[in-house]
Design a protein around this nucleic acid. Structure first.
Lengths: 247, 247
DNA sequence: ACAAAAGTGTTATTTCTACACCCATGC
DNA sequence: GCATGGGTGTAGAAATAACACTTTTGT
């Protein structure tokens, strides 16, 4: 694209795409061309398209996935998040075409979305036109990011942690069938703290959103753990109603 | 203003300003000139200004208040929220100057903020240039609103209810000193349900964010209730840490 | 047989809920 | 003196937290 007249001016969308693999939370990141910096998958908004829809599009273009949990969490609108010098650099290096310079030099605000995706389902993450790699990076060891992207990721993670208190999480982050220790590992990773095995199991089962299958995960060393899957109806009901009443 | 070149294109800010009066949640609304419709206080964003800062400005211009709890809660970005016919009408009626027509006819997205203000502190709510009244309206009996403003208010209220579960609320909505029944009435109104007097008091005191004064609210009929105030340090700590651990 | 992870049950503690009585005050 | 709202305590239920033993599997 070099056609920017159809785009909503000064508005971008950035997606923090979380995946869970090897007991680690990972984020899908793009490596900028010609630079030793990484960026969140993002894009612009067609003037005739819903902002939410564009976020869905971005997710699909980078991961190939549709129908994914995607949640808008914050608008980042500080003036300081713009960076003229950085755009200059990208134009000089040929990453951005000269006729796009003016577009990129606008003052931009960005809407943050986070997505939870099943790591294994993303076959081949694909870079966009200003990046040369698209990879999963562990949340705990992020490299140098452009602009305020590290703040965006941090806020996404915080929001996710808060959500976790009153909403179930797991569909989209785990394979269809999973074991209780796997689910617990996900929670422990997200919350950055350890949980008691027995209490975790009891509490999770009490939510009544899991279905126990009669299969077990075999092949691993030690006792084969039972496989569970989510009861999708009840799961989504729980998202609607929340898990804790609070007051 | 007829100068729009300094404004971030296609971006507005709308503030849902909650006040609490006579045991009712009220929202500060503007009555549109020449129309039987009401609107949220809103405005545009200077290209050189933080979006958050503009929300603060709007709040101050309408209420005269500074240093108020103000929370960004959602970006409304659907294409359908635009309304060309409506702008036409406003231009024809002289509410919008003709040279502003083009500006208003852009596709707009809007960032929603909600604020909690002490009703009594708002001396004289002031309308803006496209409205002729600025008044507190009860949340439960809202008149016809423009665009998606009623959806914005609903989402603000929902967000506020959720916040309430894990964050204290009351500073800014109540006078400096208040009674326990007054605080409870606020919670009941926000949550749209009744709470047990004794349990409410116990729970609230357990949060350890209240200071009991040695005064009582006199003059009312019946037993004079004790006045409390918030321990501001502990209150703000509680906002940081949250009131419920969850996991 | 043993190391390592998975499954299960019990008890103490805390929190929540429901409920009843006494105390001030204005009329 | 009585109606009305404000203040306080207690007992049962539910949720949470802490903790130990048995089972299965691969080596």
């Amino acid at each position: 694209m070099s056609e920017t007249t159809n785009l909503h001016p000064g508005l971008s969308v950035d997606c923090v795409i979380f995946g869970f693999h090897e007991n680690e939370l990972k984020v899908l990141m793009l490596k900028m061309k010609q630079m030793d910096k990484w960026a969140l998958p993002g894009g612009f908004v067609n003037i005739k398209e819903d902002v939410d829809k564009e976020a869905i599009n971005i997710l699909q273009r980078r991961t190939g996935l549709k129908d994914i949990f995607l949640h808008q969490f914050h608008l980042f609108g500080n003036v300081s998040r713009n960076n003229q010098a950085y755009v200059d650099k990208l134009v000089k290096k040929g990453v951005i075409e000269p006729d796009m310079k003016e577009w990129f030099q606008q003052r931009f605000i960005t809407v943050g979305y986070y997505a939870l995706v099943e790591f294994a389902n993303v076959q081949e993450p694909t870079p966009d036109n200003i990046s040369d790699k698209c990879e999963w990076l562990p949340l705990t060891e992020l490299p140098d990011l452009i602009l305020d992207h590290s703040e965006i990721i941090h806020k996404a993670h915080q929001t996710l942690k808060t959500q976790l208190i009153y909403q179930p999480i797991g569909i989209n982050l785990l394979p269809e069938k999973f074991t209780m220790p796997e689910l617990q590992a996900l929670y422990e990773t997200l919350l950055e703290k350890e949980l008691d095995r027995r209490n975790f199991r009891r509490k999770m089962l009490a939510y009544d959103i899991l279905i126990q299958t009669d299969e077990r995960r075999k092949g691993g060393a030690h006792k084969a753990p039972i496989l569970y899957k989510f009861d999708k109806d009840k799961y989504h009901q729980a998202i609607e109603k929340g898990l804790k009443s609070g007051w």
